[in-house]
């Protein structure tokens, strides 16, 4: 794969009709592109679903696949996103089994640092919710490996374009 291969984000607005997700994922399979994550949910308009796909690819490959996705009859529009033009967020649930109670304060500290929430707790396990950009979640997961990481469930990234505001404008808010 050529040098500009990287994680890329594609966002598509599609009609909520049977088979749409299949058509899109089938397209990726046909072109031998590997979907890293795919997240779909209702959009601001009834009947339309917003799908966020992350894939590891070159620019040319992403461009091809976007045109193909946009060609699908049920797709309203497709946009390429990256961290510079969009807010990208993902949510993960991470189950830990920390073992010795003495490590707990350390764990809580770590969760705090990542602004995680404990959503479930039992004598043996601890389930933490973290959200943020995918890199942050990767970082949390690698930390968690030190504390008896048991299971991870991630939603996959979702993204929306960011207004290209200057710092001064942000300051006015």
């Amino acid at each position: 794969m050529s040098q500009d291969a990287q994680l890329r984000i594609i966002s598509a607005l599609v009609e909520n009709k049977p088979g749409v997700l299949f058509r899109i994922s089938n397209l990726f399979r046909r072109k031998s592109f590997n979907i890293q994550s795919i997240a779909a949910g209702p959009s601001e308009t009834a009947g339309l679903t917003r799908i966020t796909i992350t894939m590891f690819s070159t620019y040319a490959q992403a461009d091809q696949v976007m045109k193909n996705v946009d060609n699908l009859v049920d797709v309203r529009g497709v946009e390429p996103f990256d961290a510079s033009n969009a807010s990208v967020r993902e949510l993960a649930l991470v189950k830990l089994s920390p073992g010795a109670p003495s490590t707990r304060p350390e764990i809580m500290n770590c969760i705090e640092t990542f602004r995680g929430n404990v959503v479930d707790i039992s004598p043996e396990t601890l389930t933490v919710e973290v959200s943020g950009d995918p890199d942050k979640i990767n970082a949390f997961i690698s930390m968690a490996r030190n504390y008896g990481l048991k299971e991870v469930a991630r939603t996959g990234a979702v993204a929306l374009t960011r207004a290209m505001t200057t710092n001064e404008e942000i300051a006015k808010w």
Binding site: A60, D70, N71
Partner: peptide, 11 residues
């Protein structure tokens, strides 16, 4: 007529 053909085979 098909935008996906542009640049597909010949970049």
């Amino acid at each position: 007529a098909d935008k996906a053909e542009i640049g597909k085979n010949f970049k």
